[in-house]
Design a protein around this nucleic acid. Structure first.
Lengths: 344, 344
DNA sequence: CTGAAAGCGCTAACAT
DNA sequence: ATGTTAGCGCTTTCAG
């Protein structure tokens, strides 16, 4: 249906090699020839087949991007950053939404290999743990975003999760809170423990009993946050401050607090993590820990590009297997305040 | 680096044809042979090359999905629906984020053709208008989601935008509002006019002067909504109710109202469009028009699948060039109320 | 049941 | 400057 290079060649009265040269702009051609080729291609509406080219050139100019949950606004931001960075080099993105399903993550890994993408960016925090051996012997360049594979050396970029947790705790403490709780993601999630560790560190630094920190765990969405907060409130009803795993859980937590007849931040303060676009617009505006998705996306793509040009694996010996940790910062908004009973 | 079918064949002591048959499960093979092939493939960690297969089979098992702006939460919802529907058939999604840039949309159209995707779903409302002639002669199956190309018959699915606009207006009117305004997207956007038309229809039905409707237009994000509302408030300071193009603009509008020293919904009511997940969590919870992204995604993929199996173009004669319009409904939350001065 | 061989559409030596 | 040719890795007749 669509015309091939042979059609163009025939029409222009030249060989396919010439067409290829002219159209890809490498290797000279007599102006007259070039003219005829271009014209023939135009007439035929010729578009070179990327798949044929990929087979020949052994590069698909495509990256795979696996995300935990595209409906968590953090990921669209990352997707955008990745795509923006990739687009410049003519790369396209095969998007794989794990939808919080670990099996699906694994399936996508295979799919991406089969498709021979030039590299994959994994931003699925639960993936590192489960597919360790796969990652250790990955047949293509891999870079990890906000997730790590214990024991596997792969280029990775992540926010400073423990610093973030600590910032959250310190903020709460500095406000005067003493009965602090935390909401965390399911165990399969890799960042959860780090953020929690940070919270504990912050508590300890303030002389509080970190070991006694009440923690509730659930899925990392609004509904999960709501459930987790309900649970936390049941276990530790006198909690006045809460550090949530992410913004979505924080939003859910605020709902649970309200459903319990209390007010945010008057009765309980909550701080999120991510600083998603909409965090500023929820009720009340969310105090949270901001991370730089743009930097993550750019960096990840740069690493992949590097790996591709070396034509090596992400974990290639001699390659830069850097693991960068991005600084995070606290954004104070309306969901945190001094606990009642404390003078302003 | 990765092994090919020839490697497997050599190792199993059979021909590549046999390997192909065994591994793809078509055509019988003596159990012993099959065994040897499977074992060889396993040993070698053989993964068939999708690109070679695509070249031979003339299908990439990939759909392209062009969205206006992945950071607008409406689109991740759609992406999810599309991916869920496509995944079942082993299809992957090449995601193209136009990022509100019409040029970029066009570039992606070409990219998708070059990649020989099996079909493309266009959910970029500004695309239909600009690339009409391209769409009219699209070299591959196309389906339009929430956008239309005037004069081009292509399968399309969209929310009933005029009904939605009307619902919004009627809601405001029924609350007692008389000085109503509207916020719309830039002219390049195709749904804007329909929604606006609906708003006017609702006004007229209530005996109000639709022609006098104050309208401000800006980019379809939070910032755009904020600017547009500011403008509207300047032009029509006595406005008490506003219908926004989408939820993001509505959120921006609420900010502008507040910045102007007024309260939502006490001084001005605002209604959005989309019913994005987070609409329920903003301050105040947004009254909005809900549409079904899941249905859209499912339908779009089904049409593409159909077109692929017919191996025809989306607009193929005889093909179902259906244009479906999905019903929408009003979701009343906290951003709308009776205007002050009217008894409850 | 299995193998030989052609060919999908392109690029890159290698000739000429 | 241009043409010939050999594949890239797979599937699929067509023979045997």
């Amino acid at each position: 249906m669509t015309s091939t290079i042979a059609d163009v060649a025939a029409r222009a009265g030249v060989s396919t090699a010439t067409v290829s040269r002219v159209l890809s702009g490498v290797g000279g051609a007599r102006p007259a020839t070039r003219e005829r080729v271009v014209e023939a291609a135009r007439m035929l509406g010729y578009r070179p087949s990327g798949v044929a080219r990929s087979l020949k050139l052994r590069t698909t100019r495509t990256y795979g991007l696996i995300v935990t949950d595209i409906e968590n606004p953090f990921f669209p931001e990352l997707v955008r950053a990745v795509e923006d960075a990739a687009r410049g080099d003519g790369y396209a993105i095969l998007l794989c939404n794990a939808a919080d399903d670990p099996d699906r993550e694994g399936a996508y890994l295979d799919l991406l290999v089969d498709r021979r993408v030039d590299g994959v960016i994994i931003a699925a925090s639960s993936l590192g743990g489960r597919h360790r051996e796969w990652l250790a012997a990955a047949p293509l360049p891999v870079v990890l975003v906000n997730c790590s594979a214990p024991g596997v050396r792969l280029p990775s970029i992540a926010s400073d999760n423990v610093a973030g947790g600590r910032l959250a705790a310190e903020h709460l403490v500095s406000l005067g809170h003493r009965r602090i709780g935390a909401l965390t993601a399911p165990p399969r999630n890799a960042d959860g423990p780090d953020r929690l560790r940070g919270v504990r560190a912050g508590l300890e630094a303030a002389g509080l009993d970190a070991a006694a920190l009440p923690v509730a765990s659930d899925e990392a969405g609004v509904a999960g946050g709501e459930r987790a907060m309900r649970e936390l409130l049941a276990a530790a009803p006198d909690t006045t401050g809460v550090a949530a795993y992410n913004d979505l859980m924080a939003i859910g937590a605020m709902r649970a607090v309200r459903a319990d007849g209390r007010l945010v931040p008057r009765d309980v303060s909550v701080v999120g993590f991510d600083d998603v676009d909409l965090a500023a617009f929820v009720d009340p505006p969310l105090t949270t820990i901001a991370q730089s998705t743009a930097d993550m996306g750019r960096w990840a793509v740069a690493r992949l590009k590097e790996a591709v040009s070396r034509n090596g694996n992400g974990a290639t010996p001699g390659g830069s297997t850097a693991e960068v940790i991005l600084p995070v910062h606290l954004v104070v908004r309306g969901s945190t305040a001094r606990p009642v009973g404390l003078a302003g």
